[in-house]
Design a protein around this nucleic acid. Structure first.
Lengths: 127, 127
DNA sequence: TTAAAATATACCATTGACAGTATATACCAA
DNA sequence: TTGGTATATACTGTCAATGGTATATTTTAA
């Protein structure tokens, strides 16, 4: 895995946002879609790209596919996520917003007793 | 200047190598060409791209164009250069090799009394 | 004023990333 | 076994990045 491939990957704002979210915990495709407000096809493709690069991995739970960071997270990715979360720029702010949205989303699927992939909700002792 | 633009920039190995070299000190186009072993046209284009992004700047000395990092260097660039110089990957090793080549090149143009852009050679009290 | 060196730009062809539509697959519940 | 939900893939058109050739520009020296 060359550094240039990793840079190319996170040069796409959506992929960067996905990695930022997954680094906080696993999510299924539809919830990623909801947070990033992006079409199903596009999300699926982005995840597929990063899966091929071995940056993320997935497992099935019923009809859901749960994506998570493939451990250990690559140092260059971690380094840049850390940097951008501290920095002040429009994309950096978006990463923070996404994490807030993620928090709300997890609360919502807990509270409303919505169907909830256990590997996501078990993070907060629900489901 | 969005983070994604910066990532796109350093996702190109040549541009990354150029920034790595310039961060160590100014160089003229022909010396960058020599170290990276790349055509004149291509080098000129890469520099032009980064000049437009305000990552580098240039000034003329005779027929030479001397390029240098535009201060202050962007934190994201600095951060990644620091990371890659410490890391171990083929591209990381290349960055180190380039810096060695740069050192030898500066010694050579000093020793051989070659024509030497003063803003480069004054770094080592020559010319 | 002409020639040579260093650099930049214009032009063109090729390639690769990306977005969208349609369709396929996998799983579940009735 | 049928329909619905979630997800993936195939196909296609479009646009941007890239690399090469030729040429222009700037400066210096003869």
């Amino acid at each position: 895995m060359e550094a240039s491939d990793l840079f190319k990957c996170i040069a796409d704002t959506q992929r960067l946002r996905i990695l930022n979210l997954l680094e906080a915990g696993p999510l299924c495709v539809c919830h990623l879609q909801e947070i990033l407000d992006v079409s199903q096809v596009k999300m699926s493709k982005q995840l597929s790209i990063m899966k091929q690069m071995a940056l993320v991995e997935s497992h099935r739970e019923g009809t859901w596919m749960i994506y998570s960071i493939k451990e250990p997270i690559h140092g260059l990715i971690q380094n840049n996520l850390n940097y951008l979360r501290e920095a002040d720029c429009s994309e950096c702010n978006q990463l923070q917003e996404d994490l807030l949205k993620r928090g709300k989303l997890i609360l919502r699927i807990t509270d409303n007793q919505e169907d909830c992939p256990s590997s996501i909700c078990q993070q907060i002792d629900c489901c």
